[in-house]
Design a protein around this nucleic acid. Sequence first.
DNA 1: TTTAGCTCAATTTTT
DNA 2: TTGAGCTAAA
Length: 849
Amino acid sequence: MIDLQTGLNERQRVAVLCTEGPLLVIAGAGAGKTKMLTTRISYLIEECRVPPYQILAMTFTNKAAGEMKERVEKILISSRSSALGAPEIGTFHSFCVRLLRRELLNTPFTKPFVIYDDSDQLSLIKGVLRKLNIDDKAFNPKAMQGRINRAKCDAVEPHEVEVVAHDLFSKNLKRVYEEYQKELTANNALDFGEIICMAYRLLRDRLDVRERYQQRFRYIHVDEYQDTNRAQYLLLSLLAAPRNGGHQNICVVGDEDQSIYKWRGADINNILDFENEYPGAKVVKLEQNYRSTKTILEAAGKVIRNNKSRKDKTLWTENEEGQSVIRAQLADERAEAEMVVSEVKRIAASDARSFNEFAIFYRTNAQSRSFEDVLRREKIPYQIIGGLRFYDRKEIKDILSYFKAIINPSDSVSLKRIINVPGRGIGKTSLDRLEQFHMEANIGGRVSYWEVLQRVAQDPALTSSTVAKRVGLFVKLMQRFIDEQPRLLLSELYHLILDETEYVVELRKEGTEEANARVQNLEEFNSLLQEFEEDFLEKTPEIELAVHAVHAAHDAHDVRKAELLPLFIEQSALASDLDKLGGDKSGDTSAVKLMTLHSSKGLEFPVVFLVGMEEGLFPSIKPWEETPDEDIEEERRLCYVGMTRARETLYLMSATIRRIWGNVSYQQPSRFFDEIPEEVIEFRDFSHGSRVNEYRTGSSRQYGSGAADRSGYGNGYENRDAGMGKVVGRIGPVPAGGGAPISFGGAARSAGHSAGLTTEPSSGGGLNDPAPSSVDANSALSKSAVFKNTAPKTLFAADWVGRQMSHPEYGKGTVVASEGVGPDQKVTIQFLSRQQKKFLLRYVASYFG
DNA sequence: TTTAGCTCAATTTTT
DNA sequence: TTGAGCTAAA
């Protein structure tokens, strides 16, 4: 018996009990939607006697799917039955891949397909551009890729692409998209978008198949519905909507306030239109939050309230009031990192928290660096989520490409990737020749790259005897792998590849730190393979195996082995970094988590640091173009998502100056600060620490008018930009270990720079990297004496202040400060875009009217 | 063929 | 700042 009385609130109970017919659940952050969903699924099985295999639940991440699976299993095991199979719980993509594999005969593929990731896709698109003689300078391949993927999100097929008259780009887009699709099929490959689209088209065009799946999955659940795109929406409609003869037993859960993937094709209308697509849909709102303190919820609620396009809903909680949200202003990104880390240490010690309970969220991956530096120095374990996926590392991708080419020699992208890796003397010229042959041979036909390689190897007259020989060796090598593969375990094949190609040998020859890291990654990859192998041989039921086995193997054991490789490749393509996170059994060491705001969705932590809250960075703004309100609203939702991840303690941080792409940039605090009521905020101005204060006094002039007001600290300080700020005075010491003062930007990685803050001349410090770009920043330290109490006159040279200029990149601006003399003179410009930038005067002098 | 050195671009990215 | 991709020289 599923316990519906305890542990569920009234609304959740309604949602669980409403099993028949369409149901839209609007679930605010932390309102227990996963609990609702898992209970609902269990209820269907236990109480409604629905066979588990008739239940489908779709999520966006493997992690969400895994969590749901686990929790459903727990409930079911703790009650009784589990023998009736399991509900199908997975991501949209894994669901569609399984569907396509089961229906392989109804797809254009004659044998199991491989999945192309973004970089594979880009390679293929570049190849198409070359083939069609389209200049990739004029028509950026990445832009093409973006548009193709967008089209796929919108379920737009090549023939439906609209060509705008006189618009070459749209014309080319159509051609490229068309050709790209052909190439994909010829390569026996699918990209992420195509996984969904092909499944959609199959269900759309084949009534028999559609009916089978409609009958199979009688109860459908969709998580994060606000993030579904058009293609996903249509797919769901084919399974459940009345207009397609569906059963309408569909329960979608979403929250428009947490829609943060609009830029990627997520269509908010899917939620708004739900009641049209499914007339008579019930709507349930879950508004009680179980995660955060009242204070955090209040702050987040006030922020999201500023969005115009949203249905009004108000989260409430019975949780404690909790402590104030802490908003901290730091001197620069280094100081920001120092403070975060020192707070982590302090709280970990005083509140006996494990490092697991802390998370740092930033807008862009690039921001992780400063935190990594400090965390590493302080020997605090940390884990970065996202960024470069493990499977995206060069060495891993190389091996995976061998794998892919072995099971699917039609995969030209993978073949081209590895043909000269490690180097076998097949260089650019040879590759161009091969490419040429491929194009010629492939006209009107279906000659794969692999076949071209074989021909070239056999016929020295086609190229030269050297090239033929070298290509021949590669062909022979690959052929051997292909022949051996069915008899080998994953790890055996892996070692065979490494041995025969001397991949590791080559890496060791390099002897660099980077090469060593790659060898280590390969070792990790090896254990991953073994793990997969063991898991697979233990658990995977025989039924799952049938599909790939068509062309392999002679006995049952070999069938299993032959199955391993395709399955591994598939999961490596669909896996993400997020998956590793938080699985309590995965031996997860206690580490501070670093991730982008996007990755943070769906997670929660007791202590959250939201860093880099500065105009331009967050909200992200391109200074050179207009930012539409909708974009700001999406940024605001992102802010809301980030804030509502916090259970007890929330820090919102911003830096005054930050290095962005190697330039020093003066940052204004994020507008989102203005939206949080004063009462729930505690303002800690760390840029007014004793030593830093000197820096502030000097450089605060950079702000132009009003700057003087800011330099006094601890008394009636009012930050106009922050729009708030009851002053609590300086709290805590300047956060730094061993008395090292807060230092200036990234340049301060060498200890000497920080000395600029006090007495030591920078020339005596570890200025070991005087690259031109860093000199710019360093000179701010060493020459302009901004850190000295007595600022030289030139610092405030009035002659330039107030003058107008027009920058080709940043637009119109006014000089608000000037410093240095002669060739070193710098000016700080306040641009209309709210950004401030500092330039060497001689570089920008020509932009003044 | 390889590689050193240059220019250019650059969010977010569940799959 | 980093990285990818291209050109020129070894």
